[in-house]
Design a protein around this nucleic acid. Structure first.
Lengths: 240, 240
DNA sequence: GCGAAATCTTTACACTGTCAATATTGCGTC
DNA sequence: GACGCAATATTGACAGTGTAAAGATTTCGC
């Protein structure tokens, strides 16, 4: 299965045309048999993205390579290049998918909230829950330097995610958050909420909250710790 | 300067002993001339760590490779292996240095605070300031999966950093934080402070706060945004 | 002084991203 | 339907990476 690519040939082949027009390959594909893998995949771009997500969640960020994705999808190692340009392209498109998944999860969580307090808690809890359910994706979205935000799909998905956050903060403050200008108070409220939830998520995924969790009363979960944090933060708004 | 290592030799050399005892090398080193680079470096380990920090801050995390560090230090590409085992080892030792630098900066910042409010603000501000001054180091310490916390130097330095945070929170709550057990309230306070500052720092370094900053009144800096966040958080403790 | 251990270099190999050249197929146009 | 071109996929090559093994050199303990 393509274990070694560079065979270090004895002589540097001087680009001889060879002209092996489908007769040199012994019997790889009997000329348009639908059951065999055709030369043209048909929907390789989507297949590659799905393969990439599988590889990411299975092998982590370090295992997410162009060649690994190509292997997972069963195509040659250079096939992804044609669809995504380079690794940055593939990673950026996958991150855009992650942001859309994430946005959908957040919207769904907000819908199912009833009381004001539960509305205030639903969003951050869903945030952390998404990251725990898709740690690879969350890491791809937030800890990769290799993202190209100039790509429209990624830019739009990330922008939409930010807008959702800003709107939620605005609703909690009972203000209309304008798209153009923010007061320092508004900006601070948004940055504070985002920083706290993002920071908590990163520390949790990195295992750095273990030191705290194991010192808490036995059996305390990360979710309970998060809820305690949120309630202490919201204490002024929702006095017990 | 060792531009290409794998020359793809024509014939696979079958390990012939060759016996070239210092006569085959023409005149590389005239037998113990102190001005020339000696075979034994003497303090290569420290030199490698300093070279690694230079490479990290110059070329970023992606540029921090074993071979790049070796080039920077002027030794062969496999020299670091002997001192650090593998890339994880080098990166972990460098991260330990980062944590010690960081701890020193935090301690210094706390000393120079006078009023209770300034004491409460000094630590997070110094935290963000360190990350901005050493973005490569901070990224190494907090966004690398390739850290081996089993290494005593790294474990100890990171532990000390956490202890400093816990003590600062305890002082603010006017409680004695025990090393063994925490109440849920205490754990939540520590995790909340750490999450917020860490999250703010990561978002800032990643440029994700730009969307907010450019919507704030013209000229607002990240430091001012941070201060607004901190003051709103501390409003209950230090009413204006 | 001498052998052993520590240190550093050399060599090799599997893996990676990326580019160039080639092969194959689909599709619009006659 | 046949032709030609563009899109798609493969093959091959190359520079770079980490890492392991083996050789060269120096230092150190005795």
């Amino acid at each position: 299965m393509a274990k070694s690519d560079t065979k270090s040939e004895t002589v540097r082949s001087p680009r001889v045309p060879k002209r092996t027009s489908s007769a040199s390959r012994p019997a790889r594909r009997p000329a348009s048999a639908k059951t065999e893998t055709p030369y043209h995949h048909g929907a390789l771009r989507e297949a590659l993205l799905q393969a990439a997500e599988r590889v990411l969640e299975r092998d982590g960020l370090a295992g997410l390579t162009l060649r690994a994705v190509a292997r997972e999808a069963g195509v040659s190692h250079a096939a992804p290049t044609h669809h995504f340009g380079d690794l940055t392209g593939l990673v950026s498109e996958l991150a855009a998918i992650g942001f859309r998944q994430f946005n959908a999860a957040m919207a769904s969580a907000c819908d199912s909230a009833t009381t004001p307090l539960s509305r205030a808690l639903a969003r951050p809890k869903a945030y952390v829950a998404y990251a725990q359910a898709h740690p690879g994706m969350y890491g791809l979205m937030f800890r990769t330097e290799r993202l190209d935000y100039a790509r429209p799909s990624l830019h739009e998905a990330a922008e939409s995610s930010f807008a959702g956050l800003a709107n939620a903060i605005g609703a909690m403050r009972q203000e209309q958050i304008s798209g153009d200008a923010l007061t320092l108070d508004q900006g601070a409220a948004i940055a504070r909420a985002w920083s706290m939830v993002h920071g908590f998520t990163m520390l949790l995924l990195d295992g750095r909250l273990e030191d705290i969790l194991e010192r808490l009363p036995a059996g305390t979960t990360a979710e309970q710790l998060l809820e305690a944090i949120l309630k202490s933060t919201l204490a002024t708004k929702f006095p017990a």
